[in-house]
């Protein structure tokens, strides 16, 4: 299921780069084929797996075997991490757009809080500020 992770990653990069848009499209078709159980030529999933395992074969062939055998498991873990981090990134971006900080409860913990947000000490947006 590395195609799904690849699709998310390439789709985001594809906003800025034409090369990644093409890869995102390939990854999308790969996902579609996977979910409809159709065979592929060499899908982007196989290519990514080839690159990762190939790299390991050159350096740590012991690990290459593990990664090759459990690639699907690693892929799902990576997809989960990607989805979760994408969710939090979008959430952070939303809060920043709305409140000037990615973490309204603790704006000082956010790397990109605006000065105004820091001074205001914005609390949880679902409760009224005690002012």
């Amino acid at each position: 299921m590395i195609c799904l992770a690849a699709f998310i990653v390439f789709a985001i990069f594809g906003i800025f780069s034409a090369t990644h848009r093409r890869l995102a499209k390939e990854a999308f078709w790969c996902v579609l084929r996977r979910v409809t159980f159709k065979p592929c030529q060499a899908s982007i999933g196989e290519i990514l797996k080839g690159k990762i395992v190939g790299w390991l074969l050159r350096r740590q062939s012991r690990w290459a075997g593990w990664v090759h055998r459990y690639f699907e498991v690693f892929s799902w873990i990576f997809v989960a991490i990607t989805l979760i981090s994408t969710f939090y990134t979008i959430k952070g971006a939303y809060y920043y757009a709305r409140y000037g900080t990615c973490n309204p409860e603790h704006p000082e913990q956010c790397l990109i809080s605006t000065q105004a947000a820091l001074e205001k000490g914005i609390k949880n947006p679902y409760y009224c500020n005690d002012k």
Binding site: E46, G54, R58
Partner: peptide, 20 residues
């Protein structure tokens, strides 16, 4: 799978073959 084998040959050893 032959495609996977061909990709592994390419990525691990820079050996180009054709699969399919």
């Amino acid at each position: 799978d032959s495609h996977q084998l061909s990709i592994f040959l390419d990525e691990s050893a820079n050996i180009l073959t054709r699969s399919g």
